[in-house]
């Protein structure tokens, strides 16, 4: 246990953790939305995120992005990346719903079956990328590529702010700010719009909602698309911060994001944000304490502890009960 390393630089680790947690939070929103409405863990959500990272990478290399372009161009590229990532992830999410879940929903199959199809589809997506698409998006044609692929850095990561001994980089500010912004938008959408009311209605009671004229399939599609959009945004942040992607990056991020969703209270949008940021911080602390060896265990330990002592998560499960 390396306490000196942790407490000597606590503020810095907290900042690193928060920015890491921003990605978890955005991916966690997808789990939470789907779970809130369907009571179903969308195991393939991690791959929806992975597709986003590759789509953004592909677009950037198509546009011929060079390392560290002038700031104006960088912003344009980032916005294009956001749109492309959101579209690609949203479309993948829709496909997942259509292929893996719709037929099973008609059959009212037990959750186990949903989970297995989701795992199967997630394997298929991962392999499609490993065998063909990863090569394609990195500009080598449809060849097998199971290696880490680098992404051109758009924004030079530099310290712009120093608070309490912590150096905060521009990318970290963008990450946390955009996670907050996305959550705010989503929260408003669910709580204030007509479509959001439909989502909440189906979450509360699918049968009653259907009898009141809510088109269930449309609501479910909407929920998957929203989750996909958030995952696409997370993919952009990932590309900016880490500058690499790989065919199997989805798995670990997905697992952590799911943990974050449970930690905050699955089905609860604000909970997903809280859980994500908290988990990011916990993880960075654990990594510092143990020199990275136990970083991945920390998330699971947190998950088990939360489920034992507060199975509804920190903020409680409540997509259906959200304020009208």
């Amino acid at each position: 246990m390396n306490f000196d390393a942790l407490f000597g630089d606590l503020a810095q680790h907290t900042v690193d953790g928060l920015s890491k947690g921003a990605i978890y939070a955005l991916v966690a929103l997808g789990y939470t939305l789907v779970y809130g409405v369907l009571r179903l863990i969308n195991f393939a959500h991690s791959e929806i995120f992975m597709v986003g990272t590759f789509a953004i990478l592909g677009t950037w290399s198509l546009l011929g992005v060079a390392d560290n372009p002038p700031i104006g161009m960088a912003i344009v590229y980032l916005l294009i990346g956001l749109v492309v990532g959101a579209l690609a992830s949203g479309a993948t999410a829709l496909t997942v719903e259509r292929v893996a879940y719709r037929r099973l929903r008609r059959m009212n199959a037990p959750p186990l079956i949903f989970l297995i199809t989701a795992i199967g589809l997630s394997l298929v997506l991962v392999e499609i990328f490993a065998l063909w698409m990863a090569g394609f998006f990195s500009g080598r044609g449809f060849t097998e590529n199971r290696l880490v692929i680098g992404i051109p850095p758009l924004l030079k990561q530099e310290t712009v702010l120093s608070v309490a001994g912590a150096d905060i980089t521009n990318v970290q500010i963008i990450m946390v700010a955009s996670a907050l912004l996305m959550l705010y938008g989503l929260d408003q959408f669910i709580n204030r719009t007509r479509y959001g009311r439909g989502v909440r209605a189906v979450a509360q009671s699918p049968d009653t909602a259907a009898l009141m004229g809510v088109h269930q399939d449309r609501v479910i599609m909407l929920v998957f698309v929203l989750g996909g959009l958030m995952a696409g945004a997370a993919a952009l942040l990932w590309n900016m911060r880490y500058g690499i992607t790989k065919f199997d990056i989805g798995f670990v991020v997905g697992l952590k994001a799911f943990t974050a969703a449970v930690l905050g209270g699955i089905g609860n949008l604000r909970g997903a944000l809280l859980g994500g940021l908290l988990l990011g911080v916990i993880e960075v602390y654990a990594a510092t304490l143990t020199r990275s060896t136990w970083e991945d265990v920390a998330a699971f330990v947190v998950l088990v502890v939360v489920l034992i002592f507060r199975p509804t998560g920190l903020l409680g499960e409540s997509l259906g009960k959200a304020r009208a």
């Binding site: 099973l104 079956i113 394997l123 065998l131």
Partner: peptide, 20 residues
Amino acid sequence: SEYRVLAFGLALVLIMLLRP
């Protein structure tokens, strides 16, 4: 063998959809 995992995933999806 190159397509082993892909075939495995596809088989899982298809079997669960057609014969849960």
